[in-house]
Design a protein around this nucleic acid. Structure first.
Lengths: 134, 134
DNA sequence: TTCAGACCTGGAGCGCGCTCCAGTTCAAGA
DNA sequence: TCTTGAACTGGAGCGCGCTCCAGGTCTGAA
């Protein structure tokens, strides 16, 4: 007989930032293995479940689609898939890098626009200053 | 009588990277002003239209929602709204910065994971090397 | 024992941003 | 003149990732 700490759905939602509905959805969608249950049928998340959800958080926040997450989860069920898992994460990393790069590029454009508006604002103020001085 | 260069929908799609459907959608949605038409009723995009779409590209690529873009377009119809436009873009810039920061943070986590897999791969190789040497 | 409130399920619904479609019209080249 | 292909319209449909709902069950505190 072994004992282990488990967490209620509400606690997991609190700790991971996922909603209860999202947690159930992830389970249904195969993003995570079926969660253990209490005698009464309530979910009892283990520490590992919560850790897994931490990784899910990371991958979702970086834009990995549910389908890829599901694929990754499947690979993790088989211990003999380290290469594939690594490849999947490396591919994702490249995509993340690309979106960061794209974001930085467009941010530069955006800031040019902002700078332009500020210069317009400045001339409006100059204008105001002149009219005040008149 | 004045002449100006205009562009067909196909040309604009080519230049902006938006699909024909998306261009029509943006017009319907108020993301851009109604585009001028030829005698036969076909759209004739002006250089300004194309420039505007360039800005739309920038804002969409950085995640600005259609509704905000529409709001911005409305402000641009009134010359007397520089402050509001600037505020809108500055707010957007902050959000862009936040998502870049979030992305960088999670990317770091992701790379730790990748590094872990590589170390596993390395020990697997060591293991392989050992078995080869045996 | 009772009751509130957390949790259960299956399935419908939603918000976003397009994307596709059908049926029609326009325009340029052979 | 005919043909072909690009563009027109209004509206339906879609993929994604949740989110909500109804109707029922479980559980711990009073």
């Amino acid at each position: 007989m072994r004992f282990m700490t488990t967490y209620t759905p509400a606690e997991v939602a609190e700790r991971t930032g996922f909603s209860l509905d999202t947690l159930r959805y992830y389970e249904k969608a195969g993003v995570m293995d079926a969660v253990g249950r209490t005698a009464g049928g309530r979910r009892a998340y283990t520490e590992q479940d919560v850790e897994w959800l931490g990784l899910v958080r990371c991958l979702r926040d970086t834009g990995m689609p549910i389908a890829a997450l599901k694929r990754y989860a499947e690979l993790c069920r088989d211990a003999d898939t380290l290469d594939e898992r690594l490849a999947l994460l490396e591919e994702h990393d490249r995509e993340v890098q690309e979106s960061i790069d794209a974001l930085l590029l467009q941010q530069a454009r955006l800031r040019e626009k902002v700078a332009w508006y500020r210069s317009q604002g400045a001339s409006a103020e100059r204008h105001l200053a002149l009219s005040v001085l008149r």
